[in-house]
Design a protein around this nucleic acid. Sequence first.
DNA 1: TCATAATATATTGTGCACAACTAAATAAGT
DNA 2: ACTTATTTAGTTGTGCACAATATATTATGA
Lengths: 160, 160
Amino acid sequence: MTKLTGPSGSGSVALSDLVCFDLYSAARAIIRAYRPILSGLGLTYPQYLVMVMLWQHAPRTVKDLGDNLDLDSGTLSPLLKRLEVSGLVTRRRRADDERTVEITPTSKGRSLERDAKRVPLEMATVMGISETEERKLRALLRKLSASLATQVDDVATRVA
Amino acid sequence: MTKLTGPSGSGSVALSDLVCFDLYSAARAIIRAYRPILSGLGLTYPQYLVMVMLWQHAPRTVKDLGDNLDLDSGTLSPLLKRLEVSGLVTRRRRADDERTVEITPTSKGRSLERDAKRVPLEMATVMGISETEERKLRALLRKLSASLATQVDDVATRVA
DNA sequence: TCATAATATATTGTGCACAACTAAATAAGT
DNA sequence: ACTTATTTAGTTGTGCACAATATATTATGA
């Protein structure tokens, strides 16, 4: 699995391409690793992220979830509907501002937190890298995301 | 953007969850960064990966592409059809083994390589981390992917 | 040889991601 | 007040990912 090997055939592949491919590949690999653990809870990975947010505090608006998870309404709206169908959350327009929709976990949604407690531990064992390495990895990923975000902002500013 | 902050509200979020979220988030951010660059070539990021493979050498079978990019036929078959519709590749069953399908870039597909030469450079400038950091990041990602892959194999073995 | 297994690709169905657009409600400026 | 802009969600359409299944072809073993 997972090649895109460096200099081999005619043209060599540039480092930036390789970093991106490894990132793309690792992200899919880790979500794949979560899948069997989360399927026991009846959740996909993005759904799990939303529930983690709601376990931290609730209710939260769709916009709040989107800001924190970096997902737009095109992704969240149907996802939240599926969580509603699963009986894990309720969606209700706020009385004092009819634009916003508040997402609240149901008792079933809240009780799921207990079962979810074991998820991080199982993931930690499966990842097979040390805590120090995890922290280094996080630091690099966050630095990368930060500079990519400023680039997007630059483009947005250039247009405005 | 991009929170899932650590210890804040009631329950703190475990490190493994944070690593995974940062990975998930960074992977989307970098593909988002590729998008405007690749759209000039008429390619999505997975399509670009396939073309990079074909520029290295061709023809390649669907299986070969899948092994190297870690994608299955459910992803590749429609993707390759779209590349065929775009006039960038041809698909042809091999005479000596009717099971396999060979993917060959057309002259249009091959000539696209020149325009694509600038992609890695543009990405490198946008990423905003040093080559040393890129290499460290790659090393960590590959180590993570490797241990996740062995875990998947373990499960497969347990089933067999 | 002939049944069986293994291999390679395609298809179907579900669930993200995200761009582009719409609709409704609130905020701001005059 | 009233027009205009902004904010918030939702909808539509495209393109991955991937599980599950189907189909056809080749390889293998009794």
